[in-house]
């Protein structure tokens, strides 16, 4: 009981409360604004709870913006990118983890160093090339970009995990007549499910949230993702803050759900990746 009076413990709890308030308050305010009628958004007496709660902002999102279309675009882009990135990263991570060959460490360095690449340097030539190839305004442009963005980190995370799986199991399988790919698919992957989940969540979140490439590489509502659509609404001078915050809530809900469900896997995976990188 005397612990409670320890000033360090008190300070810790106070700091923790402050930190959580810093993180949570913007969310509370966003949700609150999204249910307020426009004239209440910036009224003199600001209150957390809307006095005249309304669904008008959400209604507007569906009436004036093809929200379901953007949602579907985001889903398609995020899921396909995640699956492709997972396949490429698994193969690459397995290669780096299990084999010793010429150029291995330089190739590993090359893969990791692309993480540092300034995206704005890439988007200018890619815009010109994708225009020439007719890939602007297609999902393909975004698939390729997001798979590339996520490969370096995912490869590294999966390599770290594969390193922890004992080789003896695989050697036994080879002696039993498994081919090399069978070893990977039947033996290694089932043991790596936590790491695969963590990597998928990472890819999904990154692809769902990406803004710059989505904005530049899509110009029509048919393929535009949610973040790009929101950015363009603001860019065109749309200042209905209620509507924007409602759109923000709807854009963020899917990633928050994914994150809350899988955060344990993700944080463990990220932590492992961070210490090894």
């Amino acid at each position: 009981m005397t612990r409670a009076y320890n000033p360090w413990v008190m300070l810790r709890w106070a700091l923790l409360a402050l930190l959580i308030a810093f993180v949570v308050c913007p969310f509370i305010w966003m949700v609150s604004i999204s249910f307020k009628p426009e004239q209440e958004v910036f009224s003199k007496t600001l209150s957390i709870l809307p006095r005249n709660p309304t669904l008008a902002n959400y209604q507007m999102i569906f009436d004036f913006v093809p929200y379901p279309r953007f949602f579907m675009n985001s889903m398609i882009v995020a899921i396909v990118s995640t699956v492709c990135s997972l396949v490429a990263s698994t193969l690459a991570g397995y290669s780096f983890s299990r084999f010793r060959y010429k150029g291995r460490s330089s190739l590993a360095f090359l893969v990791l160093s692309t993480q540092m690449f300034p995206l704005v340097t890439g988007i200018i030539p890619l815009y010109l090339v994708f225009s020439k190839l007719g890939l602007i305004n297609t999902y393909w442009a975004l698939f390729v970009a997001y798979v590339a963005f996520t490969i370096p980190f995912c490869t590294w995370m999966l390599k770290g995990f594969f390193d922890t799986i004992p080789r003896e199991i695989e050697e036994a399988a080879v002696i039993d007549g498994c081919s090399r790919l069978e070893v990977l698919v039947r033996i290694v992957l089932p043991l790596s499910i936590p790491a695969l989940v963590a990597t998928s969540v990472f890819c999904f979140i990154l692809s769902w949230n990406e803004f710059l490439y989505a904005t530049v590489l899509t110009t029509s509502n048919d393929v535009r993702t949610l973040p790009a659509a929101l950015g363009i609404m603001i860019g065109q001078g749309y200042t209905q803050w209620g509507g924007l915050n409602a759109a923000g809530v709807l854009t963020t809900l899917p990633v928050i759900i994914v994150f809350v469900f899988f955060q344990r896997y993700l944080v463990d995976g990220l932590t492992a990746g961070a210490t090894k990188g």
Partner: peptide, 26 residues
């Protein structure tokens, strides 16, 4: 629980952070 809450901003879109802070700092 505290860890999960504190890490949430990392997972949300930058666009969202930008909208919310634009609203609050209006």
């Amino acid at each position: 629980v505290a860890r999960a809450i504190i890490l949430i901003p990392w997972a949300v879109p930058t666009v969202l952070a930008a909208i919310v802070f634009s609203t609050m700092f209006n």
